[in-house]
């Protein structure tokens, strides 16, 4: 209660210093570093999770492409489970459920595993549709000039599959970074956590939310712009029949 009152008086006193636009600049400069830290956390965990998702996705897509028995079934089940459940629930299960089975992971591990579990299936679908988009006769065409199987994959199939996959892969990267916004449920001080904290403590809703939106824009806008540039370049550049 004492805290609350203190916060209120703090709020009142800052309110007097408000600029004409009604936004408390002092508050923003004071707490911006917290957002920077939180954004770093989001970016770091997001990057690791996305990287692992790409690996899981590529392996999953290859298993399906080569129709490897048994593994292929397992991947299919994994993809369905991962795509049809929310990350939030996956994280609850990892963070609160698994310890009861004796599997205790840190918050960061849970966040990374959860993001990878979710992202792996999305990346797998992106890679798979890229691989499927390459005509079978391209393969034969490569064989007929004497390339062996792995050379055909390396020089002919992968480059084409990858360029077809790029838009979907980029969309997945953006999607996964957005999904990191639920990391606060596993007790990580991410952007949402900081914003909620500031709202709760100081009732500085406008400032806290403004910084939140700006932080996500700073993270996501460049990625989204790069993605659309990349997509356009691939579409208009040298190839694609």
């Amino acid at each position: 209660m004492e805290n609350k009152r203190e916060a209120d008086s703090h709020f009142l006193c800052l309110k007097n210093k408000k600029g004409s636009n009604g936004v408390d600049i002092d508050f923003i400069t004071q707490y911006a570093p917290m957002y920077v830290e939180a954004a770093k956390l989001t970016l770091r965990l997001g990057a690791i999770g996305i990287l692992l998702s790409l690996i899981v996705g590529l392996l999953g897509a290859l298993v399906q492409y080569y129709k490897i028995p048994v593994l292929r079934r397992i991947i299919a089940v994994y993809i369905e489970l991962s795509r049809n459940t929310p990350l939030l629930v996956q994280l609850f299960l990892l963070y609160f459920g698994l310890p009861k089975m004796g599997i205790v992971w840190t918050s960061e591990t849970c966040a990374i595993v959860g993001l990878t579990f979710l992202g792996g299936s999305y990346m797998a679908e992106a890679f798979r549709s890229g691989l499927e988009s390459v005509d079978k006769i391209q393969f034969e065409s490569g064989l007929s000039i004497g390339l062996n199987h792995s050379q055909v994959m390396r020089y002919i199939i992968f480059p084409q599959a990858l360029s077809t996959s790029v838009p979907a892969l980029c969309a997945n990267v953006i999607f996964l970074i957005k999904e990191t916004s639920v990391f606060s449920v596993v007790a990580l001080a991410d952007l949402m956590y900081v914003a909620k904290d500031l709202i709760g403590l100081y009732y500085k809703t406008e400032e806290a939310l403004l910084m939140l939106v700006v932080a996500y824009l700073i993270i996501l806008l460049p990625i989204s712009i790069i993605a659309s540039l990349l997509e356009r370049r691939l579409r208009y550049a040298g190839f694609g029949n």
């Binding site: 006769i137 034969e140 000039i145 004497g146 480059p159 084409q160």
Partner: peptide
Amino acid sequence: WSEVRQKIGMVFQSYDLFPH
């Protein structure tokens, strides 16, 4: 087959150049 196919050139109906 890789060696055999070097001795046998093949051209397909749909050209199948590598588009990239």
